[in-house]
Design a protein around this nucleic acid. Structure first.
Lengths: 285, 285
DNA sequence: GAGGTTAACTGGTTCAACCACTCCAAGGGA
DNA sequence: TCCCTTGGAGTGGTTGAACCAGTTAACCTC
């Protein structure tokens, strides 16, 4: 997994505004490094579900970090549903397909190389999920929105036009638009559902840039969506939104054609970043 | 928030199978206790978004735990999207509506009292989300399933008939059925989506018992769902599944009528039918 | 062999100390 | 006066060692 980690740090201070697109250097805490490493081992399949990890004392020694630091990493992995820990018994690798949440989808995509077959498979899944969320949110919003909701949605649509040149910025605006729609849908679950994607521009900018590469075209869809909401016809809004987005996603697939279909036995997630503190670990040994 | 925490410990050893529904006593680690406490403060609104928490040193002193223990709790809350921490700057309460994931839905429901207006609101959201997931999974499964998928789905449907007397056990079987459908749908995102609900029987048994109180009736729906999948007509499967589940959920709402809408603070004759396993739930508490 | 005991694991918690980062106000320069 | 540098105080991050608590399995007794 190539972890060219996104900043996730606060925006740059205003002093350096002169240089247009300067980004803060990616810093990674020890806990981040260890949990990224272990996460990669699990998601790549090198650590199979059911495998018992070495004891915390052993593993921390092998990784060259303090046991408490390792514990923090393992706690993070457990929160993601990648391992399960039992007092006195040990830590075992869980089956992420059966335990992890939707937020793992972005992480999975990032772990793959662009244009690999598995990458297309996962991106297709992501597009389908996004489509489902959008269609349902628009349908429920059509049935339940108030005039205030329409104003909020309209304001978000206005912002969208200012970002047709930058896919990541457009993605943020699109997500803000969707948030307004979800609020109009009067369903907390939909908002929480959306939150999973709302983190993507920060955490997976490359993926978002690929997904929103047609922003100048799809920007024209939003007025139509607003009309659907105004119509107060939930079923029609659902059907039309679905069909429109299906067309958009098919166009995306045509722009990003999958590589040679089969033959290559190759399996996902080739490489680990590895070697953060390995020198330190070796020094001890 | 009343945290009558579910066990979440491994299933009871087979030695005690004689006593039918014995459950392991609920044990809670210090980290669990602290994070549950803080989570309640955030979700209840007593700690508002933007509020800066006291420093770790102060807070750990106030709570009577070690700073490292508190740190583990805060890390858990950060993974849930309830707080954000910045090195050197402090920890502030985040807006869970804009940060938390779908897994927070169950926690939110559990934090409310049954039959409260807000409780009905959240359960309605949960039912809608479940409906969306089911309709899409069935539709995609209809388009993409193989013969092996049908066998697996049929096996799960068989198991469902054995649990029409216990809502929680029925819920587990229903989720296993849905997992088989999601696998047939060839969409990893749907599986991850489902995982959010798959944890509910363990983490929120009371909520699950309420949602699946009609299991003996809805058990009859599964053969129809299988026929829809076999039809290989995705659009029709989606529409029919949606309509069927809408009817089921409306029946649920009739069985669990919301309390007096407004004006009347509370009046005695409201009374909900309910009370299946409440004795069991009370015994645990 | 069945049952209970014990010892060697495992993870959970605490302590004290130090490192790294952020913030802001006091100070010095223009 | 204004700007900017520069501390220092306070924040979270990491470490080491020690001990508590739960699990497991080998072992011993009967």
């Amino acid at each position: 997994m190539d972890d060219s980690n996104p900043p996730s740090t606060p925006p740059a201070p205003d002093a350096v505004r002169t240089l247009a697109s300067i980004a803060p250097v990616a810093r990674q805490s020890v806990v981040d490094a260890v949990s990224d490493r272990l996460r990669g081992e699990v998601l790549s399949g090198r650590l199979r579900p059911g495998t018992r990890l070495p004891s915390e004392r052993e593993l921390s020694l092998a990784l060259g970090v303090n046991r408490l630091t390792l514990r923090a990493s393992l706690a993070r992995l457990e929160a993601l549903g990648l391992v399960t820990t039992r007092h006195g018994a040990g830590t075992v690798v869980a089956s992420w397909r059966e335990r992890a949440g939707l937020e793992m989808l972005g992480t999975l995509v990032r772990g793959l190389k662009v244009a690999e077959p598995a990458w297309h498979e996962l991106v297709r899944s992501s597009l389908e999920i996004r489509r489902i969320l959008a269609a349902e949110a628009v349908a429920l919003a059509a049935e339940r929105h108030t005039d205030e909701d329409l104003l909020a949605i309209g304001a978000c649509a206005q912002v969208l036009r200012d970002h047709v040149d930058d896919p990541v910025a457009f993605a943020r605006a699109d997500l803000a638009f969707m948030r307004a729609v979800c609020k109009a849908a009067r369903n907390v679950g939909l908002e929480l559902f959306l939150n999973t994607f709302a983190r993507w521009p920060d955490e997976h900018p490359q993926l978002v840039a690929a997904l929103y590469d047609d922003c100048c075209v799809s920007a024209e869809l939003y007025p139509a969506v607003m009309d659907l909401i105004k119509s107060r016809n939930g079923a029609a809004a659902r059907a039309l939104t679905r069909r429109t987005l299906e067309e958009r996603d098919e166009a995306w697939s045509r722009r990003h054609p999958p590589p040679a279909p089969l033959g290559v036995p190759d399996h996902p997630l080739a490489k680990t970043p590895k070697s953060f503190r390995e020198r330190k670990a070796e020094r001890r040994a």
